[in-house]
Computed example of a mutant assay.
Amino acid sequence: MTNKELSQLYYLVKEIKLKRQQLEQLRTIAEGTTVELTGMPHGTGINDKVGNIAADIADIKAILELKIQEYYYQYNRLTRYIESIDDSLVRQIMTLRYIELKEWNDVADMVGGNNTEDSVKKRVYRYLDKQ
């Protein structure tokens, strides 16, 4: 497995957060949108603001669901891979970094043993290079 593959969970979490923000923005817009029913036609084009917003919300919900499913797939895949590693320290480092999404300096602090950000990073990259 490569560092890029291991990092996918991080990027999926970012995508999910972004989609949730977009969904909330659209819901806020939808709450402020009113429909005026006068019985009189106006405008030359067809413009259904509420309908368009509802369609956008449905699209984002569907995309969000797919991203969440992909997150669980990647989470399970990474967990299985990391659990198969023989070296306990590498397993701990990878779990903290790629599953719990900690920064390298936090990983070093949590692992302890006078490890630094660079030392835990190098340990993982050396392990990956051997694979």
Rank of each mutant, 00 (worst) to 15 (best):
1 M>T: 00
1 M>K: 03
1 M>I: 00
4 K>D: 15
6 L>Y: 09
7 S>K: 05
8 Q>G: 13
8 Q>A: 15
9 L>K: 08
12 L>S: 00
13 V>R: 14
14 K>I: 13
14 K>H: 07
15 E>V: 03
16 I>M: 11
17 K>D: 15
17 K>N: 14
18 L>A: 11
18 L>R: 14
18 L>S: 14
20 R>K: 09
21 Q>G: 02
21 Q>T: 04
23 L>A: 02
25 Q>A: 06
25 Q>P: 02
25 Q>M: 13
29 I>N: 07
29 I>M: 14
29 I>Y: 12
30 A>I: 03
30 A>M: 03
31 E>A: 11
32 G>K: 02
33 T>Q: 03
33 T>W: 05
34 T>S: 14
35 V>M: 04
39 G>N: 09
42 H>P: 05
44 T>Q: 13
44 T>K: 15
45 G>Y: 07
46 I>W: 10
47 N>Y: 14
48 D>F: 12
48 D>Y: 06
50 V>H: 05
53 I>T: 10
56 D>A: 12
61 K>S: 08
62 A>P: 01
62 A>I: 07
63 I>E: 11
63 I>M: 14
64 L>R: 03
66 L>N: 08
67 K>W: 05
69 Q>E: 12
69 Q>N: 15
69 Q>H: 07
73 Y>V: 01
76 N>P: 09
81 Y>L: 08
82 I>N: 00
82 I>Q: 01
83 E>H: 10
83 E>L: 06
84 S>D: 04
84 S>W: 06
86 D>Q: 15
86 D>W: 13
90 V>C: 04
91 R>S: 07
91 R>D: 02
92 Q>W: 14
93 I>S: 00
93 I>G: 01
96 L>Y: 07
98 Y>K: 01
99 I>H: 11
100 E>K: 05
100 E>I: 04
103 E>A: 09
105 N>A: 15
105 N>H: 12
107 V>W: 04
107 V>I: 04
107 V>S: 02
108 A>E: 09
109 D>N: 09
109 D>T: 07
112 G>F: 07
114 N>G: 09
114 N>E: 15
115 N>G: 03
116 T>G: 10
116 T>Q: 05
118 D>Q: 13
120 V>I: 09
120 V>P: 01
121 K>I: 15
126 R>G: 02
127 Y>T: 10
128 L>R: 02
130 K>T: 11
131 Q>E: 11
